[in-house]
Design a protein around this nucleic acid. Structure first.
Lengths: 332, 332
DNA sequence: TAGGGTTGAGGAAACGTTTCCTGGCGGGTG
DNA sequence: CACCCGCCAGGAAACGTTTCCTCAACCCTA
């Protein structure tokens, strides 16, 4: 910058003004821009945000469960889209559901002085998250309830979604319904389980502990759990799986048992190619892109000075009937 | 930091030393750490990298085609994994195959003074990429050849992979083989097409222009192209699709025509659930995670001072026979 | 005991930028 | 014609760190 100023024969302040688009003698502006181009000048964001009055870095942090999970990457993309329009860059990382890693990641982001944070919280009490919120860095929790109070959240209607699926299965005549969910530490897993419990109770379905798998975290674990569930007697006639990978694992199990056309199955969260499996898989779809978009919009509003009370957006889920959920119980 | 120094009753330099783990009187260290904790002190990365001798920001940039594409997100994850171990943070963005967006993104990354860049280049001549390389910021191109010479690259053996698939189809008796590829601007699309052309020529297959679709960019476009291809006469008896979304589009087309068990089909690049379709889809698999890992390792080596000649790693592809590629031609 | 060497902490400069403040110049008015 | 006001560009301070340099204190040796 010093060199640019020297080459253009102006002061540093003028170069700064030109770079920042502040009105300046057009003649000087031209000289500065020429000099900058000639020297390949590039303003340093670190120094800029260090000195700037608002201390903004034009960067927001995004803490996902795993950038490679389709749900997460759709979310990532939606947040990115909302942010580029505002000239913000997204710093994304994977927590892998580990509270320790989440804290670490948040720490790094805060150290980088991000303007705001969008996080899919592991749910563990998190000092870093609380600190960020306390220090005035806007935080938005997506997909799951916030472990610290007073934070904006965007979640799906997990309970209602699962309950709706259970009711649909019941209406088809199913009375023995199995359920498989992720780690109990996860808010979504608990909510979905709760939705299942409430709906089955309300409908008077028989519930057996061996028809409910909890703390099932991978597709492979789901395959094993479902295989076990359907080789006991009596076995359920229908199944609800509470996460996309578990749904896939369950499909593998049912295909393996030759039951894929015999057992009704509804998964929570849509996934690519669900419509191309045999039979096509019915799902309770959430809209990760919309969740990301809403979260980003709230964050941007906070960055624009919105200091209203914490918002808690709940997005509806949508049942997509494709076939696997429309299989009647045997004998009907 | 000033406050910490005051509270601990030491100089700024001492606080800096303690924070950076430089040996200091254990008694003072304790006082400083206590004061820091008490005040919630957090060192500012911007200021740090501004002053630091090596000017390192502990951040690397990653420019992907689309963070939501499974290939990209697997790559992203692999790069992230390799980097966290070194305490580096990953700044990722989507170029959407638009050279303009790629330039913009690279510009923002360079302005942020990232330590290095991993990029899936659109292929358009890119001044920013060239500038980064020239200015000494290590750059590694993944998946595609670099538009600027002298840059490290990690690519898959696209040509060989497609040629192998064509040979396998030929060995099964297929003589009329269709091919669908992405935008001709993409290096991978050109390479894969080249592999197809070379292999068919070598084997003496009849080639018809209407059996080759190029510049097909979306799953829907692929569906239409393949539907058209298989409703002409004579139609191919086998099909190779050169990208994962095109493969999916082609599956939809074949299912729509009722030909999914009649036409042999091999896709380039594996995708989740390929094994669960009907029939399971045979693919030429590349290993995006390995590509990301290798790219990250090269980048880290460069950051460690490796200034050897540019490396060009070509990773082998692997044919995965699942069924769709093993369908013989009619009458055999 | 005195001097030199070594160790370790503090002060201040520097990193690249923005922003405040000052000073010069030009134009308008009395 | 002279004075005052306003505008605009330049100089310098400041942002939060690291690092160089200085200086004090201590120990060891002559």
């Amino acid at each position: 910058m010093k060199d640019v100023a020297a080459l253009a024969g102006v002061g540093l302040a003028t170069v700064s003004r030109v770079i920042n688009g502040v009105a300046v003698d057009p003649h000087l502006t031209g000289r500065v821009l020429d000099a900058a181009r000639q020297l390949g000048y590039r303003r340093d964001t670190a120094a800029t945000s260090l000195r700037r009055a608002d201390r903004r870095t034009s960067t927001i942090g995004l803490v996902l469960q795993d950038v490679a999970n389709p749900f997460s990457s759709a979310l990532h993309r939606a947040v990115e889209d909302a942010c580029v329009r505002r000239g913000l860059l997204v710093l994304a990382g994977s927590s892998d559901e580990e509270p320790e890693r989440e804290r670490e990641l948040l720490g790094v982001l805060l150290t980088r002085r991000v303007d705001g944070i969008v996080v899919v919280p592991t749910g563990a009490p998190d000092g870093e998250l609380a600190a960020a919120h306390r220090d005035g860095t806007p935080v938005v929790c997506v997909d799951r309830a916030s472990p610290v109070p007073g934070v904006d959240t965007v979640t799906a209607d997990n309970r209602g979604g699962v309950a709706g699926a259970v009711r649909a299965l019941h209406a088809l005549g199913h009375r023995r319904i199995g359920f498989v969910a992720d780690h109990t530490t996860l808010w979504t897993a608990r909510e979905r389980h709760q939705g299942f419990v409430e709906a089955t109770a309300e409908l008077g379905c028989r519930a057996r502990p061996e028809w409910v798998g909890r703390d099932v975290h991978t597709a492979e674990a789901a395959r094993q759990a479902v295989t076990g569930m359907f080789t006991t007697s009596p076995a359920p006639t229908a199944l609800v799986t509470a996460q996309n990978w578990l749904t896939v694992g369950a499909r593998r199990a049912l295909v393996g048992l030759g039951l894929h056309h015999a057992v009704a199955h509804i998964g929570f969260d849509d996934f690519p190619l669900a419509d191309m499996l045999d039979p096509p898989v019915s799902v309770i779809a959430q809209d990760p892109a919309e969740m990301g978009r809403r979260a980003a919009l709230i964050l941007l509003a906070r960055l624009d000075g919105d200091d209203g009370p914490a918002r808690a957006v709940t997005l509806p889920t949508r049942y997509i009937a494709r076939g696997s959920g429309e299989i009647p119980p045997p004998g009907r």
